[in-house]
Amino acid sequence: MRTGRPRQFDRDEAVRQAMHLFWENGYDATSLSQLKAAIGRGITAPSFYAAFGSKEKLYKETVACYLHSHGRVTDALWDDTLPPRQAIETTLLRSARMQCETGHPKGCMVALGVMSANSEEHRHLLAPLDTARARTREGFIRCVKRGVENGELHAGASPDTLGLVFNSFLFGISTLARDGVPLSIIETSVRQIMALWETFSVKNGNELPNG
């Protein structure tokens, strides 16, 4: 009985190569031809379907791969051994460095995923990215709440409002990275946005800002 030719590529590496394509172009704009050409220096359609089942299934694998690797730059938001201010700054700096480093597309696949699949037919594929964005947003808000609860920030500081400021800055880094803004400038901007924390700080003797 013929069993077919053995697979001529490393499957884990193939998922990584596909992840880079989806990260760069999004789901809708990445064609099957591009995927076949990128994997293992080129594979046939039968080999592609035998290995991955479909473009949709491969995309789901690449999203999981991203979230368990590059996407972990936000883990500090949930690390209670870190002071809340440090957790936020660490997250912003780690994410900026990841988004600007070489070896993969610029930006964040989670942030860029908002526009990855525009058709209703494929919108369900973005659910893990939607969940990741919501969790990151929750993480920033949680850090501000910790700051209020431990007396580091004024009791009147709004966790929702201040948390969303940091969250918005994080996801804006993707555009900056794609536009080629140098990492050094983004890192300086991170330190500037962290000055907002000091505005609400009890330690510095600041009054709670109006509005």
Rank of each mutant, 00 (worst) to 15 (best):
A157K: 09
S184T: 15
S184G: 10
M98F: 09
R178S: 11
A111G: 05
M98E: 14
S189K: 12
G180W: 13
E120K: 03
F171C: 02
R94W: 06
A155D: 11
M98Y: 10
C143W: 05
I141K: 01
G103D: 05
D160M: 11
G139N: 06
I141V: 15
L125T: 05
G151T: 13
I141L: 02
G151Q: 05
G107C: 07
A155L: 09
T102C: 00
L112K: 08
G147Q: 05
R123P: 01
F171W: 13
E120G: 03
T188K: 15
F166S: 11
A157G: 02
G156Q: 06
K145S: 14
V144D: 03
G156N: 06
V181G: 01
L176A: 11
D179H: 14
R97V: 14
L183G: 05
P182T: 11
A96R: 03
I185T: 13
I186P: 06
R97S: 13
R178G: 09
A96L: 08
R142P: 00
C108N: 09
F169H: 03
R135Q: 03
C108F: 02
G180V: 10
L176C: 08
Q99K: 06
V165F: 13
L153T: 08
G172N: 06
A111K: 08
A117Q: 12
G156F: 11
G163E: 01
G139W: 01
A111P: 00
R94D: 15
I141T: 14
C108R: 05
S116M: 08
V165Q: 12
T188Y: 15
I185L: 15
G103I: 07
S116G: 10
A134D: 05
D179L: 14
A132T: 01
L162I: 12
A96Y: 02
C143H: 03
R137H: 04
R133L: 01
A96I: 04
T188P: 11
R135F: 00
G147D: 05
L162C: 09
R97P: 10
G113D: 04
C143F: 04
H124R: 02
L170D: 07
E187W: 10
F166M: 11
C100R: 08
E120H: 05
P128Q: 15
N118Q: 15
A127R: 15
G163I: 05
M109H: 10
E149A: 12
A134E: 07
S174K: 04
G180L: 10
A117F: 08
F171T: 00
P182H: 12
G113V: 00
H154Q: 08
V144N: 05
S189R: 13
E149R: 09
I141F: 01
Q99M: 15
E149P: 06
H154D: 05
E149Q: 14
D160K: 13
V110F: 00
P182I: 12
L162Q: 07
D130W: 00
M98K: 10
V114R: 15
N167R: 00
K145L: 09
S95I: 04
C100D: 02
I173L: 08
C100K: 07
T102W: 03
F140K: 00
M115D: 11
N150K: 09
V110M: 01
H154L: 10
H104W: 04
D160R: 13
S119E: 08
P128V: 14
I141S: 02
E149K: 07
L125I: 03
H122N: 15
G103N: 04
G107Q: 10
A127H: 12
Q99A: 08
S168D: 14
R146K: 09
C108T: 13
